[in-house]
Structure formats: C-alpha cells, structure tokens
Design a protein around this nucleic acid. Structure first.
Length: 203
DNA sequence: AGGAAGATCTACT
DNA sequence: GTAGATCTTCCTA
C-alpha cells in the first residue's frame, strides 16, 4: 500500500500493527506468561492507552489450589485469548485465558510500564509518581479503566477495545518466583517478571 | 439476608 | 512490616 514507505518493510509493518494471534494464547499458561513479557497492552479509551507488560503469573485448572477454576469460574474453560476479569479486595484483576477450550487455565497481568496516555492514567489513579501508576494488578486495571464490563473480550482481534501488540523482547532477562498472595501455591514458580524493571510490583 | 473470603492497596510506624 | 479499607462473589440459612 502507498502508505508503507522508506525503511518500513512489509514484514516490519505487520510486526507493528498486528495483535498477538489466538494461537499465541493457545498454549501452556507458564509459556504464555513468560513470552508475553515485553509485549504491549493496548486499550482504546478516550485516548489510546498503552503499557508494556513487565510482570505476570500463570494459573492452571483443578490441579491448582489457587485457581478460580476451582471456585466455579466457568469462563476459565473457554477458548484461548479471551479476558477473565474478577474482583479481589476491592480491585479488578485482569486475566487472559490460555489453552484450548475445555482446559481451564490463564495468565494474570500483574504490572505494566506506562507508555502512552499517562495523563489519563494519573487522573484515574490520583497519584503523581510514575512508578506508582501501574505497578500492581489492581493499580494497572484502575489506571486503564478496566472493570467487569471488559470480561469475555477477544484480545487477539484488533477491533476489540483491548488487544496485545508484539513488543521488543531483545535483551530482557526473565526472573521466576512463587506467586504473590496465594495461600497454597504449587511447588513450582509461576510468577514471572522482567529483571531490573522498576514497574514490577515486588522485585 | 448475612457473613466470610480473597491472585490488593494505602497510609502509617 | 503491619493494620485497616475495600467490595464483589459465593456460601449458608
């Protein structure tokens, strides 16, 4: 097309504008949780809001004592790539379903690095410090204006109000830790974050 | 109808 | 590091 010029090749153009496809999410949640680090969460709002995903957790199904699947969250059995949003301690938490339909699992976005629409995020959060804006699962949803009305959205579609762009993952190191705030955890680390990033909730 | 449980946050010491 | 606020969902009566 005539708009694609200069050093932007066709491949580069696709890399920039295409959301992560459904098949990206149609895998094991710990793989998805690690590979989504460094990618960009986009929300269409009054303005476009963007944040780089820097911290995630993986949740499995009935074998996972901390999973909402055991509490009857039937949306966790749905197909990969749709949102699962629920309230904890007065905060909305943002998840994306992973694995094929019938295999309950998902990832939690715990923190992002603000990239675009920072003034609107500050207004919603009522804080001035940049590093307090989105450095936690409840902080980030409040900054992005995400609540239960965004439950069940397909994040692999570019016409959705929320989708994920591929990001620059070169030179990032991933740290693995046990999940935060869960009473009975699995014996493997399922929390992942970008080493050294200042927007991680608890380094 | 009421109570308790959370994948949390903030303000304080 | 700890206490209190927070509020929806789920469980029991």
């Amino acid at each position: 097309m005539g708009f694609v010029r200069g050093s932007i090749t066709k491949d580069r153009w696709l890399l920039v504008i295409m959301p992560l496809p459904k098949k990206f999410f149609n895998r094991d949640p710990s793989v998805v949780a690690k590979e989504i680090l460094g990618c960009i969460l986009v929300k269409k709002d009054e303005k476009i809001l963007k944040g780089r995903i820097v911290e995630t957790e993986a949740y499995y199904g009935m074998s996972d004592p901390a999973s909402r699947a055991r509490k009857g969250a039937k949306i966790m059995w749905e197909d990969a790539g749709i949102t699962f949003i629920y309230m904890v301690h007065g905060n909305w938490l943002f998840n994306i379903i992973t694995m094929p339909k019938g295999s309950p699992s998902g990832i939690l976005i715990r923190a992002v690095e603000p990239l675009q629409g920072i003034d609107l995020m500050k207004k919603r959060r009522g804080v001035k410090e940049l590093k307090d804006l989105t450095s936690g699962p409840g902080k980030f949803t409040k900054a992005f204006g995400i609540d239960k009305s965004y439950n069940g959205i397909k994040v692999y579609r570019r016409d959705s109000p929320i989708y994920i762009e591929k990001g620059n993952r070169k030179d990032i190191e991933i740290v693995e830790r046990f999940r935060i705030g869960v009473k009975k955890d699995l014996p493997i680390p399922l929390r992942f974050y970008i080493k050294g990033n200042e927007f991680v909730s608890k380094p």
